[in-house]
Write a protein that binds this DNA or RNA. Structure first.
Length: 877
RNA sequence: GCCGGGUUGGCGGAAUCGGCAGACGCGAUGGUCUCAAACACCAUUGUCCGCAAGGACGUGUGGGUUCAAGUCCCACACCCGGCACCA
């Protein structure tokens, strides 16, 4: 590695603790320029800034103060149900800042450090502004990692899970995140998953949770089904194994009912959520406009409907294809082709998703021995089954238009099927299928003609005709599939359904929740294709809640994304044992004002949370439809251009960085690195430089020699102007989330104040105190320990976190003189100091009088002078 | 292929109201301190020409609008992310 491994830490962690501050520091320096040896000459001396000691000191103080506890302690149980559960003034302005809660695998890492450093800037800013801020903490503690660890260690997943939570909680405490610790929840606690089960039952009652047999993604490694969202490039998102298909009965949530609303409601998020997240969600929902067209098929009474985005090409539909693994294929198949179809199906099922998606693969399929009729031309179209048609998109059947669709073209080549062009390709077109726009051709019958029309017009006309003749209609189709929520694993909330031989599916009555997990461990949890819960016979056997007869529990558990799809509703009343969330509290706090988390949840979690919010809204539980008003996706922390990983060996250990530079320097480095959304490469950054700055700020606070409360109005005006301008800028920068620039401005203020102390108005000037106090408060958003330490050195009692956001005096923002740029032909030739109120004529005269301007002009004739007082004069010759 | 975002010194990044490009920091170079080094501190630091004064060039490329363009418009190239046999 680089210099980070060498003894940089000497300056910070060698010295003894420094309880007494800088009593013996020199206050007078010999000459402004000769500041050599200041403090740094003896880093272990009495004026050293001992990062670790400062951390220990303030942690204890803060624990006692609990500055960010918002929910009234007696009320956090929800037992009293008071109208104003958090004890804050009912009229107080509230803010809810939510971080995507952590998954408890191991200790916190660099990624956590970045996410929470950024989120905390906002939370702490809001507190400084005087808002009542809910900044909760909890853990997403169900999931596969815990289960796999438990198998390895032959214990219950809870042991690993809660041990890791304890570790992370302590790390968060040291990292000084402004949490209200009374909110703390764990999704694996029965008191939480009881309500996850409640959510399931709500959706079930509304018809939004249902069971069906379906061809589902199966991970042979984890021995469980996967949601479409958990299949990445044909592989299991978790273990990387190639995913195969299985037909199983599974539980689904009906997200597709909400496809259009999930799309429409994004309008309100525009500009508040990152553009790329909205794009990803749009892509995922995958709305397309087109038409449903009915095709009569031999031997079938009902026509078969297809979805197409190109109804304008229906005249060119020369054959018909159904998904090989859809029930429809078997249904349409002529008896003599059954054998061929079965053989083909076998071949398709053997193929993994990865092979199926492989590029350049030849089209395959099998003729089903029947024909369909083109509804406009009346032409006979052979019907095929093929795997390039997907069973769960559209209707699982397509009209094939080889001239205008590349896939259909390829299929037609393999099977020698006719190609009829219905869109005139441009002259010299040498490609295969032509998918561009162009005049429609070969598309006329006695009843309807599309010839000569462009694409959109042709679509309109043909849809109109289809509708008039009862052969189809305009239609919208979505790529989005229903959310598969059941998992054949142990460490999740059991699905609260009982299967009764006489009553069928029976929901577990609400007052019998939670359905607790049986206590299993080790080998009991080994994946074996059915849920481990099935082996726990005492647990499975139950009497039917409806008829009382013998029945069995559903043995699947829910996807962890169900846990996280509603946790933001729980935080205002995390320990309420009478309801999942208190409607009054939810009204007070939600929707979340600012959500912060990684881009890895751009689709899954955010889409599910949005869906659940809308569903609960429709069921009358919520009065809003979008859970997260604003979203920040922090970038990734990488190292030397690549994501950190064990195999690459480029991991940077958070604990080590904190040990070496301290929490504040690590946080500052994260925030200063660049815009929150950008990836940050740790190799490009300098935590040592961050620490250097923090020490400079700290020294500044120690230099201040005016008394607490000294009137700044008597102080140095030049410095005051810098301070007040910085405060004004800082407010705007935090609001617009340009935290890296906020840090830069704080640095500038420190530099200016240092200069004022050393070679300007001196340390006793009250303006220096004003500046140092402003630095402390600004810094409290990013580096809370140093800020607190400065605050104390400035003579104040803790905590600086609640000191209040500084205000600026507009009078001090007025400039006495501004720099006017004088350019000739757009090139800067002179700069003038002029009063901001200067008139255009006067400014023009001044500009033309400048020697350098005169020299540049020479004999040239001035044709035009553009004067924009007080900043710009441009002379055109 | 479709959708979105981007391209600014050696590096991370500022400047988004069209008005001094390069704030702030890192690194580098020189200096102070030191026996020496490290640390710390001070100074310089876009490139090129020039002893200097000063000048030329400069925000992916090519055009355009404008007194004035990193910023607005058109075309293109490249990079990153998402979706993708989705009809």
């Amino acid at each position: 590695m680089n210099e980070q491994t060498t003894g940089l830490a000497g300056a910070v962690d060698d010295g003894p603790p420094d309880p007494s501050g800088d009593v013996r520091r020199r206050t007078q320096r010999a000459g402004g320029a000769g500041g050599a040896g200041r403090d740094g000459g003896d880093p272990t001396g009495p004026s050293a800034y001992d990062v670790q000691a400062v951390q220990e000191k303030w942690l204890k103080v803060w624990d006692g103060l609990d500055p960010f506890g918002v929910l009234r302690k007696g009320d956090a149980t929800g037992a009293t149900g008071s109208a104003d559960g958090d004890g804050a003034d009912a009229t107080a302005e509230r803010r809810y800042l939510l971080d995507m809660f952590p998954y408890p695998s191991g200790d916190l890492h660099m990624g956590h450090a970045e996410a929470w450093a950024l989120a905390d800037v906002i939370a702490r800013y809001w507190v400084q502004r005087g808002y009542v801020v809910l900044h909760p903490v909890g853990w997403d503690s169900f999931g596969l990692n815990a289960e796999n660890a438990a198998i390895k260690r032959n214990e219950n997943p809870a042991i690993w899970t809660y041990a890791n939570i304890a570790t992370q909680a302590e790390s968060f405490r040291r990292y000084a995140v402004s949490f209200d610790w009374s909110t703390r929840l764990h999704t694996s606690d029965p008191e939480y998953y009881r309500w996850t089960q409640w959510l399931f039952l709500q959706l079930y009652a509304a018809g939004l949770a249902y069971r069906k047999g379906a061809s589902v993604n199966w991970c042979p490694q984890d021995q469980t089904v996967l949601a479409n969202e958990q299949v990445v490039g044909g592989r299991c998102e978790r273990c990387g194994a190639e995913v195969t298909k299985r037909t199983l009965t599974q539980w689904f949530f009906k997200v597709t009912d909400y496809a259009q609303r999930l799309l429409d409601d994004m309008a309100a998020l525009e500009g508040r959520w990152p553009a790329r997240i909205l794009t990803m969600q749009r892509n995922w929902i995958g709305r397309s406009e087109g038409a449903h067209i009915d095709f009569a098929v031999e031997g079938r009474a009902e026509p078969v409907t297809v979805f197409t985005t190109r109804p304008d090409t229906v005249f060119g539909a020369t054959f018909f294809v159904v998904a090989a693994d859809a029930a429809l294929a078997e249904e349409l198949c002529a008896p003599e082709q059954r054998g061929a179809l079965a053989e083909y199906l076998e071949q398709v099922r053997r193929a993994t998703e990865v092979e199926r998606l492989a590029e350049g693969r030849d089209k395959t399929g099998v003729f089903l021995g029947v024909h369909a009729t083109n509804p406009v031309t009346g032409a006979s179209m052979p019907v095929y089954a093929a795997d390039y048609v997907l069973p769960d998109y559209g209707t699982g059947a397509i009209m094939a238009v080889p001239a205008e669709d590349q896939r259909d073209w390829e299929f037609a080549q393999v099977f020698g099927l006719p190609v009829v062009r219905t869109v005139q390709p441009p002259a010299g077109w040498a490609g295969e299928a032509y998918t561009g726009d162009g005049p429609t051709i070969n598309s006329a019958t006695d009843e309807v003609s599309l010839d000569g029309l462009g694409r959109e017009a042709a679509k309109r006309v043909v849809i109109e005709w289809l509708e008039a003749n009862g052969l189809g209609q305009g239609a919208i189709n979505f790529r989005l599939r229903d959310w598969l929520v059941s998992r054949q694993r142990y460490w999740g909330p059991p699905i609260p359904i009982v299967h009764c031989p006489s009553c069928g599916e029976v929901p577990v009555p609400e007052d019998q929740l939670p359905v607790r997990l049986p206590d299993l461990k080790g080998a009991d949890l080994l994946p074996k294709g059915v849920s481990p819960l099935a082996a726990s016979e005492d647990w499975v056997r139950v009497s039917c809640p409806r008829c009382g007869g013998p029945a069995e529990r559903d043995t699947d558990t829910m996807d962890t994304f169900v846990d996280s799809s509603w946790y933001y509703l729980r935080y205002p009343t995390p320990h309420d044992d009478t309801q999942p969330f208190d409607p009054a509290a939810v009204r007070r706090w939600l929707p979340v004002d600012q959500y912060v988390g990684g881009v890895e949840h751009a689709i899954l979690h955010l889409l599910y949370a949005r869906f659940v919010t809308k569903a609960l809204h429709d069921l009358g539980h919520l009065d809003f439809v979008e859970p997260f008003t604003a979203l920040i996706n922090q970038g990734e922390v990488i190292n030397e251009g690549k994501g950190m990983s064990k195999t690459l060996g480029n991991g940077v250990d958070l604990g080590e960085q904190i040990e070496r530079y301290g929490v504040d320097a690590v946080r500052l480095t994260m925030v200063f690195a660049g815009p929150p959304e950008d990836d940050i490469d740790w190799a490009d950054l300098s935590p040592a430089g961050s620490l250097r700055f923090l020490q400079r700020a700290w020294r500044l606070a120690g230099d201040v020699s005016s008394p607490v409360g000294a009137d700044p109005r008597a102080g140095d005006e030049a410095l005051r102007k810098v301070t007040h301008r910085t405060v004004r800028d800082a407010t705007e920068l935090v609001e617009s989330k340009r935290f890296n620039v906020l840090v830069a401005k704080a640095m500038e203020l420190v530099n200016a104040t240092r200069k004022a102390v050393d070679s300007g108005c001196g340390a006793a000037d009250p303006a220096v105190r004003e500046a140092a106090e402003a630095v402390a408060v600004l810094l409290s958003l990013v580096s809370p320990y140093t800020a607190e330490e400065m605050w104390e050195r400035l003579g104040h009692a803790p905590t600086v976190a609640k000191a209040g956001w500084p205000t600026f005096d507009p009078a001090l923002l007025v400039e006495e003189s501004v720099t006017c740029v004088v350019s000739v032909q757009g090139k800067v030739r002179a700069k003038l100091q002029v009063p901001p109120t200067i008139g255009a004529d006067e400014l023009q005269d001044l500009a033309l009088a400048e020697p350098n301007v005169q020299r540049t002009l020479g004999d040239a004739v001035v044709r035009k002078v553009v004067v924009r007082p007080p900043r710009v004069v441009n002379i055109v010759i």
